[in-house]
Design a protein around this nucleic acid. Sequence first.
DNA 1: CGGGTTGGAC
Length: 609
Amino acid sequence: MGLKFGPLSGKSLIKGKFFPRRRESFRPLSSVGASTSPNSDTLDVSVVSELIEKQQWSKVKTHLRYSNPIELLHHLMESEVDPELIFRYFNWSQRELNVSYSLELTCRLLHSLAHAKQYSKIRAFLDGFVKKNKEHSNFTIFHSLTMRDNTRVCTNSIIVDMLVLAYVKNSKTRLAFEAFKRAGDYGFKLSVLSCNPLLSALIKDNEIGYVEYLYKEMIKRRIKANLYTFNTVINGLCKVGKLNKARDLIQDMRAFGILPDVVTYNTLIGGYCKMGNLGKMYKADAVLKEMVANKVCPNEITYNILIDGFCKDENVLAAMKVFEEMRQQDLKPNVVTFNSLINGLCVEGKLEEACELRDEIFGFGLKSNVATYNALINGFCKKKMIKEAIELLDDIKKQGLLPNVITYNTLIDAYCKNEMMNEAFLLLSLMLEKGVFPSTSTYNSLIGGFCRQGNMEKARKLLAEMQDKCTKADLITYNILIDALSKKGETRNATRILKDMSKEGLNPTHLTYNTLIDGYCREGNLRAALNVRAQMENDGKRANIVTFNVLIKGYCEKGKLEDANRLLNEMLEKGLVPNRTTYEIVREEMMERGFVPDIEGHLSYVSGS
DNA sequence: CGGGTTGGAC
């Protein structure tokens, strides 16, 4: 391997301007050995590398009088110097001499590190690199990686793998995803080791569309998916309620020779438990049976998921049965188990039983935690027993526990819902005093409180304040504002908010659109209401039962009963089943005015159910 | 070569 960059004396990149060569007048004060005496303009690489190894940086510095740092790096790389030592010099010179190396040179160093299997060094470098990197796009990075033909695609792939991982670790998921996409064009073959964390990050960001894309792309590129990959993707699908797709994936994994494990089934059971619909626990139970049939043994987490599911279904009795079964299986309940049960009792309003259960935790060799108290506080708040809830705040401290953001949010929300805004703000200052940072939920409660009072000015002010503090407004924030404005008759402003949220990259839901449609209907502006419906369907969201109810009511109130009847028929054609609200509208708004709608036949069914 | 999946409270 020849010196590509020529003898150092001839091709100084900085032309001696900043590192003037004063061969005659300069003598080092000390040196490692006789040969280190800089008496020629040829640099002895072995000497410099020895200095680097001993971390004698001031001496390395003296050698830089005869060459510049970039040349020295070139020189070290052309010699057989240990890449780890070169890397040390690279870091030191960047830090202490403020040298900035070209991307190409940096990539060459990464290659030699990869070749020497110094992977942790590459990871450390890339971590720092993505933290501060503002000037290099994935495109330029990939370009630099492939510049030299003496490198292997496989070495590059490892580096790109680690780059993706570094992006993910530094919460730059968008860049990680972009790198993944581009990697395919460059022929880099990524591995599960970066794909799996990327999948998890995308799920955390609610980017399920990208999760599905990534999964399909992995199969296409023959990146070997493993059990974690499947479990992660299944988790993503469950999070957005795509349970059928999640189940299909279990078939996919079998086709790949990977068998579902306890995590797979727990995830799927959890997915069913989190659904809001009726009979969800029946489906969750079916998965449990399937799991056992496939010889996968339920663990503590399986039972906790089921117990929580039944509790959320307001069926503490069933939850208690599962709890008993759990103990029969010799599985130990933990504090999560109890918290779920306590929460279930609280939701059913059984506060005494909930408190009793809290007292039993200790007997199981367990200690209650802040979540235990949060569940209780929530129970008292929902019964409007705010004084008792506040007293629990003292109990938390007595137990040596610390209230967290959820504790404060629960109480602030209770104050806001009971029009006690002053108390709510007192708690806000208390939490700030204690160093607990308000979350989006905190602001949502406060904004909701002002909206309830019809004080839109203060609500908007809070929205601005939260954005100032980098607390992101979420879907709920916008829904609250749109709802309040619609109900106040400020539909124009509500529409403006809808536009704002889209600008923020938040997708309006059925609820968002329906709220706005309701606002226009209340104003009697049916044309605008229909426009919003069209916009919603454009957005891929089909009118649901609420949409129709709101519109039908709007038409009835304008006396346009024929049009209301037409909507009723359309609703049935679309396979939507009228609910109680539909029935009430038809009875109160249509039949009392002597109008008999076509769907009369359906009504007896609805009213009877 | 390295990383990673499931459970509780607003």
